[in-house]
Design a binder for these strands. Structure first.
Lengths: 338, 338
DNA sequence: CATCGGTTTGGCAGCGCTGCCAACAATTTT
DNA sequence: AAAATTGTTGGCAGCGCTGCCAAACCGATG
C-alpha cells in the first residue's frame, strides 16, 4: 500500500471551474486553447488553475477524447537492450523529437527476446499509445496480430532488410556487412575472420554477417574463421574472443567485429599483445561509437545514423504519411585500423 | 457465435462480457483474478477474451481505480542524459525491476537542465504515475511544489549528499571524490590535477570534485591544476583536455577525471603520446564502466552500483516503506593506471 | 425596438473500467 | 425441511475529461 505524502483528492477541472466561476467545458477549452472563449474567461481560468496547482489528468483526457480516434499522447518504444549505447542513441533521437510534439515515451526492454517483446507489446497497447516503435523486423505471429488489431502507427527501426508492418526507418544491415567486406577486400586483406556475439538473438548482427559473407563470396573468398561468444556484445567479450581467435588461427589478417564495442575490446587485445594494427591484424567494427573515434588509431567502422533514425521515426509517426521504408544509409568511417 | 464489432473500435470489456454470456464485472474479476467467480465463468471469459483479442484499457482502469487505490501502474523516470552509459544503466536496473511488478516506465530526458526537469515533471504527473524517479537532489522550487502536491512516492537517485524529498537511493558523490583523492595520495602522487566536463550542469561531478579537494586539503595539498571542457563528458573531451593540461602543466603526476569515459580518452591521449601510465602520469576515473575493465591496463576507478541503484529504487517505490536515504556505497576498482 | 449573425457558454452524455451492493444460487447446518 | 452460510453474479454509479448541442449573450442592423 502506497503512503500518500499529501492526503486527499487532486485538483480537478471541476475545482478550477468552480474557483473561476465558469463551466467545466470553458476550463477545458481555455486550458487546451481549443474552441473560443472570451478574454475575461481565459484570464480567470488561467489564474484559478495556477492558484490551485491544477495538473491535467491525461488519463481521463485520453479516455474521453481520443478513445475512438487518435490515441493517448503516449508512444510505446521497445528496444532489445540498454547495455549497448546503440539503443540509448536511438532512444535519444526518439524522445528528443517526441518531446517537442508533446508525446511521452513509454519504454520496454526485451533483451533480444521475441516472446518478451510480445508481452511488452500487449502491455504497452493497454495504455492505448498513439503509436508503437519496435526494433527490427522480426516478431512473433502473435505480436503481429496484436499490432494489426491495434489500429495505430507502427514503426520498426534500425533494419530495412525485409518487409515492414507499416513504417520502417533504418538502414540495410546486410548492406553494411557487404560494404565492410568490400572495404577490407579493397585494402588487400584476404584471410578474414569474424568475431561476434550471440547471433541467434541479435538478428541485425546476423544480417551484417550474411552480407559480409556474400561480399566475400562475390570475390571468390570465404570467411577464414569465426569466433562467437555467448551473451551480449561488450569490450570484454571482444577482447577475449580475439584472443582466442588469434591463438587458434594466427594467420588471420583482418577481423570484422559484430559491433564497435567488440572491436574496441579487440583493439585492447592487440595493445596487450603488442600487435601492430593494422599490420599484424586489421580491425573493423560497426556503428562508429563516439569512443572509437578517440582511440590512438581511430577505429575503422561504419557510421550508422542512430540519432537520425530516432528522429525520423518520431517525425514519420506524427506526420501521418503513408506506410513505407525510409533508408537512412550508413557511411564508412575510414579510421586507421583497417 | 460471431460477434460483430464496429470497425475502428477496439474490443472492450463489454464485448467480452457479451461474447462470454456473463456480466462486465465478472469479466473484470476474471481478468484480474480479483474477487471470486466460478470455474466455468472463468473459462468462458478467458476463451472469449482470447478469441476477440481483448487488450485491456489501462487508461480507463487507472481512471476508475485511482480514486482510493494507488496510482496508474505507470512510473515516471527523469534522467539528465542518455549519451552517458551511466544513465541507461540506471534505467536498466529500474525497468528490469519495474517490469516484474507490472509497472511501465515513462521516461524523460532533461539534459541536465532544471527548468526542463520542471516541465517534464509537470508532463509526467499528468499521467498520474504511481511514482516518480528523479536524478539528483537539486530541483527548482516549482518542481518541489509540484512533487509535494502530487501525493505520490518520489525517488531521487544516485546522489545522497543532501536532504531528499522522500526516498533517496544512491551513494555519496562527495565521498567518492574524497576516497579517490585518498587513494591517489596513498599511492604517493602529489601534483594532482582534475580533468572534467561542464560542472555547472553536472552537479554530481561537482560534488565529487569538492570531496576530492577536501581530501587534498586534509593532507595539506591542493589541486595542482584543472582543465574543464564545455559540454558533456566524452572520450574525445577527455583526450583533448588531458592533452591541453599536460602541455600547460607537464609536472602533473596524477589526474582525476570526472568520469570513466573522460578517463578513457585520457588513456588514449597517453597512448598517443607514448606516455607510460601510471609512471609518467596516473589516471583515475569514476563509475567503472565495463569498457575500462578491458583496457590493456584496467582503469583505476570507483565502481558505482548503478544497476543496484535502479533496482533498489524500484523496490522501495513498490514496497511502501518510510521515506529515507539508502546509501549503496561504492567500491575501489584498483586497476593499473593509478 | 425587434431581428439577426456570430460568439461564448454550461449541461450533459459518454469514453472503458472498477468497486460496491443487492440479488441470487449452491451448499451446509440445524 | 427450513434456516443459515457461503459463493457467484450483474447492475450501476462513478473516475476526470472532452465533444456536442442548445441556450444565452453580444453588438449591429433595419
Amino acid at each position: 500500500m502506497t503512503i500518500h505524502l499529501t492526503p486527499g483528492r487532486l485538483v480537478t477541472i471541476a475545482d478550477v471551474a468552480r474557483a473561476a466561476g465558469v463551466g467545466e467545458s470553458t476550463v477545458s477549452r481555455v486550458l487546451r486553447g481549443h474552441g473560443s472563449f472570451s478574454k475575461k474567461a481565459g484570464e480567470r481560468v488561467l489564474e484559478a488553475a495556477a492558484r490551485l496547482g491544477y495538473v491535467p489528468n491525461r488519463l481521463a483526457g485520453s479516455l474521453a477524447g481520443n478513445a475512438a480516434s487518435g490515441g493517448s499522447g503516449l508512444v510505446g518504444i521497445i528496444i532489445p537492450s540498454l547495455a549497448n549505447i546503440v539503443f540509448p542513441d536511438l532512444l535519444r533521437g526518439l524522445t528528443g523529437a517526441l518531446d517537442v510534439t508533446g508525446f511521452q515515451s513509454v519504454i520496454g526492454v526485451n533483451d533480444y527476446d521475441p516472446e518478451r517483446e510480445e508481452a511488452l507489446v500487449a502491455g504497452l497497447l493497454s495504455w492505448r499509445p498513439a503509436a508503437l516503435v519496435l526494433t527490427g523486423l522480426e516478431h512473433t505471429a502473435a505480436t503481429v496480430t496484436l499490432l494489426r488489431a491495434a489500429g495505430i502507427r507502427i514503426v520498426e527501426m534500425i533494419d530495412t532488410d525485409g518487409p515492414g508492418l507499416d513504417i520502417v526507418v533504418g538502414f540495410s544491415n546486410r548492406a553494411v556487412g557487404h560494404a565492410s567486406a568490400r572495404h577490407l577486400i579493397g585494402r588487400g586483406y584476404r584471410r578474414l575472420a569474424y568475431v561476434g556475439h550471440d547471433l541467434g538473438r541479435d538478428l541485425r548482427a546476423a544480417k551484417r554477417l550474411a552480407g559480409f559473407e556474400a561480399a566475400l563470396a562475390e570475390s571468390g573468398l570465404s570467411l577464414h574463421a569465426r569466433e562467437l561468444v555467448e551473451g551480449p556484445s561488450s569490450a570484454a567479450a571482444g577482447r577475449a574472443a580475439l584472443d582466442a581467435l588469434m591463438a587458434r588461427v594466427p594467420e588471420v589478417d583482418a577481423v570484422y567485429f559484430s559491433n564497435d564495442d567488440m572491436a574496441l575490446g579487440g583493439y585492447f587485445c592487440c595493445l596487450g599483445h603488442g600487435w601492430t594494427v593494422p599490420d599484424r591484424v586489421a580491425l573493423f567494427g560497426c556503428h562508429a561509437l563516439d569512443i572509437t573515434a578517440s582511440m590512438p588509431q581511430p577505429l575503422s567502422t561504419m557510421r550508422t545514423p542512430r540519432l537520425e533514425i530516432g528522429r525520423t521515426c518520431a517525425e514519420r509517426l506524427t506526420a501521418g504519411g503513408p506506410p513505407g521504408t525510409v533508408d537512412l544509409g550508413f557511411e564508412l568511417s575510414e579510421g586507421a585500423t583497417a
